[in-house]
Every structure is written in C-alpha cells, then in structure tokens.
C-alpha cells in the first residue's frame, strides 16, 4: 500500500504517471512529493511507487 495524501491506496508497482492518469488531477497543475522530496516532472513515468512510500500530490487551484 502507498500512502497518498494521507490515504492508503493499492498502487504499488505503478509509476507516478500511471497513478495520476487514474485520478482527476490535471498533470499541468500538480507538484508531486515522494518521501519528502519533490519528483521532477520528467521522472513521473520512470518513478515506480513501492509499498510504504509516502506521496503528496499538491494540486494547485486558481486565484491570487
């Protein structure tokens, strides 16, 4: 299980990109943190999620 935004989700073995396309997140509006570090966008399709990983997807909204 992978902890994503505080929720345990069964996505071990998927890449970050594969996970994101199963969600409603807009890839152009997110920053992804994995175990305390930001994941470069170019590595979304190369970074495989493992059991016990902790992920936070920050999805920006408009306004300022």
């Amino acid at each position: 299980m992978v902890r994503i935004n505080g929720e345990e989700i069964n996505v071990s073995g998927m890449t970050i990109k594969e996970y994101l396309v199963t969600t409603s997140y807009d890839m152009n509006r997110v920053a992804v943190e994995l175990n305390g570090d930001i994941v470069p966008k170019a590595l979304y399709d190369k970074t495989v999620l493992k059991d016990c990983d902790s992920v936070e997807v920050v999805s920006f909204v408009g306004g300022g």
Partner: peptide, 28 residues
C-alpha cells in the same frame, strides 16, 4: 493567479534550485 503558472514555478524552483525556499499560495 493561474494554477498552471503556480505549478510551473513550484516544480521548476524545487527541481532546479535546491538551495532556495519556495513559498506558494493555493486556495483563497
């Protein structure tokens, strides 16, 4: 003000400028 611009700046700074701090705003 635009979400895409917020994400672009955030990703760029955190990926390429590891010595800097980034403070961002989202949802007001």
């Amino acid at each position: 003000d635009k979400a895409e611009a917020k994400a672009m700046l955030t990703n760029y700074v955190l990926e390429n400028m590891p010595d800097k701090y980034l403070v961002a705003g989202s949802g007001m």
